[in-house]
Amino acid sequence: MNSFKVQYTIDGEDFSVAGEASRKLKKVLQSLGVDPQIIRKATVAMYEGEINMVIHADGGVIDAEITPEKIHLFLRDKGPGIPDIALAMTEGFSTASDNVRELGFGAGMGLPNMEKYTDYMNIITEIGVGTTIEMIVNTSLS
């Protein structure tokens, strides 16, 4: 076995279960013996992505592939797409509804945090079609 692959389906209906997939990924990484600081980076990045999928895109699918060198995450949704990626990457910018903000989400830190905690991030988005975000967290501490 050269890598470990796992897929999580993100339910867009239920806010209360958002975060479950990143919790599961954390357990996977712990049992594989990944360094705790690296686990934290990967799970925070995935958690933010997961929350975004629930808030904006009615859920989606996350594929994770883990090798001894890196954690590779693909987040795919069929949501509205991101009209202006540069703007969306600005800390504090958010298009979340008031309802969502009342729940303590939508502070506009999702995408900036995802970039902050990963070593590579690439966003492919098309209006009305959906968004795919690829993230890589290197597992070596250097």
């Binding site: 076995m1 890598s3 470990f4 712990q30 049992s31 594989l32 013996g33 705790p36 001894p68």
Partner: peptide
Amino acid sequence: KIRKQRNLDDDMFVAMEKLAKI
């Protein structure tokens, strides 16, 4: 000190196989 984490195996490839088995 950080307590030793209970990974499935020190060899990550073996750990992956064990995880798949779980």
